[in-house]
Amino acid sequence: MEEYKIDLTVNGEKISTTAKAEESLLKFLRRNGFTEVKCGCEKGECGTCTVILNEKAVKSCITLALQANHKEVWTVKGMEKFELGRKLQKSFVNYGAIQCGFCTPGMIITAKNYLDQNPIPNREEIKKAISGNLCRCTGYKKIVDAIYAVAVENQRSK
């Protein structure tokens, strides 16, 4: 069986190419140069592959590439196009929320998507919101600090 035509936008750029029926969105994205989407398990169990698909944060390893046909995908490289994305990146840097950084692209995507819907969460809510994204290095403290700082900023500017 041949590959299937797929049209989607990734980080605002149109992509027209083909994908295999069974190909995961993760493999598809990495194959097309979006290596910022990381692969930690390929089973939906770590969150390193998180992307935004039609405004929802999803694990791209358990989503078919073809399920993104005619849809919008955002990876961490597209985050600089959003004020919230830039704020989060800066906050992660300043709060030391990054060690090896392998969880970071997924973590930032999850945080962005969550704060879009829920701009002023408390720390416990943030912990739940990122509970699908494992981090082995930080113990999560500084990641929560970084996201919480953006939430506090959101509250101030409200």
Partner: peptide, 9 residues
């Protein structure tokens, strides 16, 4: 159930 990401799909 699972986590917020899996719950989206």
């Amino acid at each position: 159930f699972a986590d917020p990401l899996v719950r989206n799909t």
